[in-house]
Simulated assay, not measured.
Amino acid sequence: MARKRIDEAAGLAAAQQWAAGASDRNTVATAVRYTLQALADRVPGKSVEVRVPPYGAVQCIEGPGHTRGTPPNVIETDADTWLRLATGALGWEAARASGAVLASGGRANLDAVLPVLRLR
């Protein structure tokens, strides 16, 4: 069953509220899910799984996919780090170097596709 898409206006509003300091669960969840959706739209595929527990996960980037078990290319981070990456407030290499992003597998790199959303 396909997941319901986050409406663009609602997703942008949530991301802007998060950027302005909102930290309530609903706002963060909507912003994370919207930016994950934007990532999957931008680089569709099934070779890398991006996880932001407990809010969501998407598969993206073309290449060899997987159907069962843990995928060979996984990226996992917390909501704040993901939103900072997704909006360009934090660079991929800096996030990796700080340990805020766990990435395994040869294709688990989002440097070329981030940010997915620029906030004013």
Rank of each mutant, 00 (worst) to 15 (best):
R42E: 05
R120G: 08
A10K: 13
P71I: 03
E49Y: 03
L12I: 13
N26Y: 11
R51C: 10
I6V: 15
N26G: 13
G11L: 12
Q16K: 08
P64F: 06
P54M: 11
Q17A: 15
P64E: 13
W82L: 09
G69I: 13
G11H: 15
H66W: 14
V48Q: 03
L102G: 07
P64M: 09
V74S: 05
V32Y: 01
G56K: 09
A22D: 08
V113S: 14
V43C: 14
V52I: 10
T81C: 06
L83Y: 02
P53W: 11
Q17T: 08
R118F: 09
K46L: 02
P54D: 14
A14H: 05
T81V: 09
A103R: 06
G56C: 07
G91Y: 00
T87Q: 01
A2E: 03
I61R: 15
A38K: 15
R51L: 12
R107S: 11
I75E: 03
A86K: 01
R25V: 15
R84H: 07
V52N: 08
Y55V: 09
R42K: 15
R51V: 06
N109T: 05
V113A: 15
A13S: 13
G99A: 03
S23D: 04
P54I: 13
A57Q: 07
A15M: 11
R120E: 10
G105D: 06
A108M: 07
D24F: 00
R107P: 00
A112D: 12
R118T: 11
R118H: 14
G105W: 03
A79V: 05
A100Y: 00
L36H: 05
V28C: 07
A57P: 02
L36M: 08
A9D: 12
V58F: 00
R96D: 00
K4V: 15
A57H: 03
A97C: 02
E93L: 09
H66Q: 07
W92G: 12
P54Q: 11
A79R: 02
Y55C: 08
E8F: 08
V52Y: 04
A95R: 04
R25D: 15
E62Y: 04
V50F: 09
G91M: 00
A20F: 10
Q59K: 10
D24E: 09
S98G: 08
G56F: 02
T35N: 13
P53E: 15
G105F: 04
V74N: 02
R42T: 12
T81H: 06
A86S: 12
W18S: 03
I6C: 10
V52W: 07
S23K: 06
P64I: 10
Q17L: 14
G21Q: 04
T77Q: 01
P71N: 02
G105H: 13
Q17S: 11
V48M: 06
S98M: 03
R84E: 02
R33V: 12
G91I: 00
A94Q: 13
V28Q: 01
V74Q: 11
A2V: 08
R68N: 05
R5N: 14
A103P: 03
